[in-house]
Design a protein around this nucleic acid. Structure first.
Length: 155
DNA sequence: GCCAACGTTGGC
DNA sequence: GCCAACGTTGGC
């Protein structure tokens, strides 16, 4: 099992929105970055765990945990000419973009803010801290455990 | 709302 | 294949 961090703007799709979905499950669609695409297509597998991160707000933070419930498959929103994630280069034979499905697990008792993450030497190698804009990031087991501890999750 | 970082595009 | 121009992200 591997660990990941998924970024989202809560004004667009939030952790509570995930909780409100049927079966608390949703497609993670609309990712249009090749490095993130490669993770979604090749590396992220059912059963993997996800840190759910809220970005572009006054206090960006990891707010909850989710799990992957479906391996990568073509992101059909790239084929919809009326959708905001349409990509004219995508076809059914060559979908280009991929997504996974995620399910809500639990909120963190305490949000773990970007400020707190930056202040923890154990987390200094996270792409998040290096100011990467990557929206899907790998998380090590040690980083995962550190963030859960900071978030008040009992292990 | 600004702007730095960085990914993508396209002319050559 | 280089690189300037351009667009987007996201912290502040």
């Amino acid at each position: 099992m591997n660990y990941w961090l998924f970024k989202t703007e809560p004004g667009c799709f939030s952790f509570d929105d995930l909780k409100g979905r049927p079966d608390m499950t949703e497609h993670w669609d609309g990712v249009r970055n090749y490095q993130a695409r490669n993770f979604l297509r090749d590396s992220i597998k059912t059963g993997d765990r996800v840190l759910f991160y809220h970005s572009s707000i006054p206090e960006p933070a990891v707010v909850g945990l989710a799990e992957v419930v479906r391996d990568g498959y073509p992101d059909f929103t790239a084929l919809d000419p009326n959708g905001e994630h349409f990509d004219p280069k995508a076809t059914p034979a060559n979908p280009i973009w991929y997504m996974v499905d995620v399910r809500y697990l639990q909120p963190l008792p305490k949000q773990v803010t970007l400020e707190a993450i930056k202040g923890n030497p154990l987390l200094e190698n996270m792409p998040l801290v290096k100011r990467s804009r990557l929206s899907i990031q790998p998380v090590t087991r040690d980083e995962w455990q550190a963030i859960l501890a900071m978030g008040g999750v009992k292990s």
